[in-house]
Amino acid sequence: MKIRIKFSKQGAMKYIGHLDVMRFFQKAMRRADVDIRYSGGFSPHQIMSFAAPLGLGLTGSGEYLDIEVLSCGTSAEMVRRLNAVMVEGMEVKSFRLLPDDAKNAMSLVAACDYTVRMRDDYLSGLSLTGRRFFEGLTDFIENGDLNVTKKTKKGEKQMDLRPLIFEHRLVEDGEAIFLKLSSGSTDNMKPEQLLAAFCESRNEEYPPFAFRINREEIYARADDGQDGPRFIPLEDFGENIE
């Protein structure tokens, strides 16, 4: 049985890197006595894969991992059992059964939602702060030059960010911005790239510690509708086990 688990990673958990989050969940499965499927071979490992690694320093409210189990209880029971073995900052939000032919989360990832806030306890050195910064950023997204140079393993690459930004809007009274950005193995974009490009356009240095970024949700792409691309939260591919 294929299972998709949605979880959040908040607070001090943002200092735990992706590989350690994977190890954490492997151990959590055993603590919660989840009847997870193991691979064969001399050193069997759990069948488990994550949708998309979250960078160190970011928090997430809608993170995903897929597992395979041989048996399990209801979704409510499994969420409760897993949460009983979590730590502060890690919370399992849903445990859903996927169809047998479901693609894994990682291969589906097409977009992510982010909320970007500015820290009020940090001197960023930027000339714009708070609301004015995000208004400026909105204007930059709409009218600025979004061609950026991206460093890759092979050298430098030109990249136009504009088609990778599906949605943007000011939230929290203009004190934060919501972004829906392209994600996945091709056309992957991170919110930090946009922030850095905006700072650069103002001839200011990007202050890497000035922002708090929360990834809200991860999506797969559905067939395009009349108004452009449509996205489905990864959770929606599964159904609750009653």
């Binding site: 001090a12 200092y15 320093g57 940090y122 890497p208 510690f209």
Partner: peptide
Amino acid sequence: EEILLSVQQPARYIGGEV
């Protein structure tokens, strides 16, 4: 945050383990 994100292995200092 800026210290924790500047040092190697910030998990050494935050506690909160199982």
